[in-house]
Design a binder for these strands. Structure first.
Lengths: 228, 228
DNA sequence: AGGGGGAATTGACGCAGGTCAAATCGGGGG
DNA sequence: CCCCCGATTTGACCTGCGTCAATTCCCCCT
């Protein structure tokens, strides 16, 4: 593993406070792996054997059922994933695939569990990370149950804008069909919803989005700090 | 607080392994409170000041937005709730109200945080509890995104039956409008969906449900251990 | 520059589930 | 035992979103 990777991982909130001895022990059998785009690296239903840390690239968490599938989250570096399954030593509830070519560090889940049993500071950080994941899933669920597709889309566009320093114009960071799945709609519906938002000052050309009336869009989205 | 309450709380997975000294310290300022039915005890957006433990009665977790609201979870004794907000010392993402008259033990969240920083065994159990909550929310979200209303209802009925020792007949444990909201549909749709399930061997009279063909219903629900 | 192929868009149409309003049911209080 | 009121059901209708099937677009490859 590159020592860069190691340093980046060490600097994550999740690993920042653990003792060096403990970090070293946990990372002893860890290794980095490069994956091409569109490769499935976790299959739901299988047992969690590694905590994954995305160091470079991007990853989609999705779930499958009866031939349908749905995007549950989209991850960017540097972040860990499938922590909960590792902790509980339980089957994955979601699958994961790369979107772009990605580098992922794999930490054996047994070593992870050993580390947080041994190191109270680390356990605290694991708790915080899990609480963050939980709350993020609650927000996603709230959005699905309380908002219409158009409202979800409006809120999503505003989030993207915020991520780009509140720029009026920005590029959609993923394929539209992926965004659609994340928002819980079909690509066709996303396409039509984007068109419908022209009335609220949303202009789209390909992946390029321009928001000409943020306030109007925010009013439609019903932005809410407890959901977005 | 009744010593019964204290013993029940102590026996929860979440508190079972912590040291007695630590448990006593954490519970020092805790107190039990009785609430009548239909009383809101947590308002989303307010800051978490207490970990709640439901000892008797039942509680609904719900979220509100723009005058709409939706049931996120229904709790039965004995279980803790709003752990994540306490841990993160963050605003509640969900509100809580009693369904029936309930007894709830309130543990100051500062004492909780102090306890798990001091006691590694407790931290481990907090992690496990949070991981459980997270996974439960993932399942709920999967069901919303992947299944139709009818499929969700079928799965829910089978879960209720399982909870009653796989009895063919059982009573719905909550008002139908509550169940509808939990399933993410309107009461009218629930009523019609129940009627439609007669074709799959579901008979309903008031709150009384009888399943005459479990296999048929399970096939429709597409029961999945990664979702139900 | 041309061509191939997946992504996105568009159109036509259907349907699941929402909405609104009007019965009807059912359980608790007097 | 009757009444009352909220819960539930039913009906009529609507609409948001899905489905299916063409195009069209865009990008990459040669």
């Amino acid at each position: 593993m590159h020592s860069d990777d190691r340093a980046e991982i060490r600097s994550l909130r999740l690993f920042r406070n653990m003792s060096t001895a403990n970090f070293d022990a946990m990372m002893h059998a860890a290794y980095a792996q490069e994956f091409p785009a569109q490769l499935q690296l976790v299959r739901q239903g299988t047992r969690a054997t590694f905590l994954h840390v995305l160091v470079e690239g991007s990853i989609e968490l999705f779930s499958e059922w009866q031939g349908r599938d749905s995007t549950m989250a989209i991850l960017r570096p540097v972040s860990s994933f499938i922590l909960a399954a590792c902790i509980r030593d339980a089957p994955h509830l979601m699958s994961a695939r790369t979107l772009d070519a990605s580098r992922v560090v794999l930490i054996p889940s047994a070593d992870l569990r050993a580390a947080f049993r041994r190191d109270a500071d680390f356990a605290v950080d694991v708790v915080e990370e899990l609480a963050r994941c939980y709350r993020s899933m609650v927000r996603h669920t709230k959005s699905l149950k309380l908002r219409s597709a158009r409202e979800r889309l409006a809120a999503y566009l505003l989030k993207l804008s915020a991520r780009n320093g509140n720029a009026a114009g920005f590029a959609l960071p993923y394929e539209k069909r992926l965004i659609a799945s994340y928002l819980g709609i079909t690509p066709e519906s996303l396409s039509r919803a984007l068109k419908a938002l022209a009335a609220e000052g949303v202009y789209v050309q390909g992946a390029r989005v321009t928001l000409t009336d943020r306030d109007r869009l925010a009013a439609l989205a019903g932005l809410d700090e407890l959901m977005d």
